[in-house]
Structures are given as C-alpha cells and as structure tokens.
Amino acid sequence: MLTIDQATYDAIVAHARRDHPDEACGVVAGAVGSDLPTRFIPMVNAAMSPTFYEFDSTDLLRLYQEMDDNDEVPVVVYHSHTATEAYPSRTDINLAGEPEAHYVLVSTRDGAHESGPVEFRSYRIVDGEVTEEEVTVVERY
C-alpha cells in the first residue's frame, strides 16, 4: 500500500496537468526504511514527449547523489500518461529499475484541466511483474 499526504498527491497531479500533453515525471524521496514519500522532486522530461519520459542523465546523477547525502531513497517514482490509462505499459515494465519504489501513474487523458478527473494509481514493478496497490491519502503523516 502507498500512503501519501494530500499536498504531495496534489503536487503530482498539478505537475501532470501542467506538462500535458507531454508526459510529466518525477520522484518523491523519503527517509531510508520509512516508506513515506516526503520530498517532492519534479524532474524535467528530457524526452519532451507525449509517449515517453526519461530523466536527463546529469539530473539523474545529481538527484541520486542528493538522496544519498540525505539518507533518502526514491519512495515514489511517478509519471503521467496523457492519452492512455494509468497502467504501466510494456516499456514502463521493462525499464522499471527501482524494485523498492512505488510506481505512481497518473492519467490526464480526461483531466488536463482543473475540472477533469485524473486517475492516480500505484504499482510495484519487480522483475517484470506488476502489482497494483491501494493508495491511501492522508492529511499529514
């Protein structure tokens, strides 16, 4: 199960809407072993594409160095799908490199604007195997 606070949830949705129709991506870091996503880090989609996302390689190194220095791990890795459902694609599954992360998928296909619905779902992706999990949104931790 993913437990996430309302402000971080809202920030992920806002980022996805802002970058629509391109895919938005980022990380929510949290203390090692806590499983709590606390530090929202929107990333630039270096692919700038409506069907693909990739962190820039220099940004990626900096991000991991920073998390290392703070004793953090990427608790959540999120990205948006802008024309399809919020379910991991074959590409998402093949490239998932963080077996301990919650992979959050947001779909803006009907919710690019403030009023529209946004799907927000979370998965574990380990060895090519996808398991959807419950998302619990709390006011604060």
């Binding site: 895919e23 991506c25 990380v27 990333m43 692919a47 594409s49 409506p50 069907t51 693909f52 996302y53 990739e54 962190f55 390689s57 990626l60 190194l61 991991y64 890795v77 990205h79 799908h81 802008t82 024309a83 399809t84 991991p88 694609s89 590409t91 998402d92 490239l95 998932a96 490199g97 963080e98």
Partner: peptide, 12 residues
C-alpha cells in the same frame, strides 16, 4: 564509477 539505471518509460 557510478552506475544508475535510467528512470524512463512511457505510454508506448
């Protein structure tokens, strides 16, 4: 030397 898997994916 640092090794990092790309963080990437997409709807296709």
């Amino acid at each position: 030397v640092v090794i990092l898997p790309a963080v990437a994916g997409g709807s296709r």
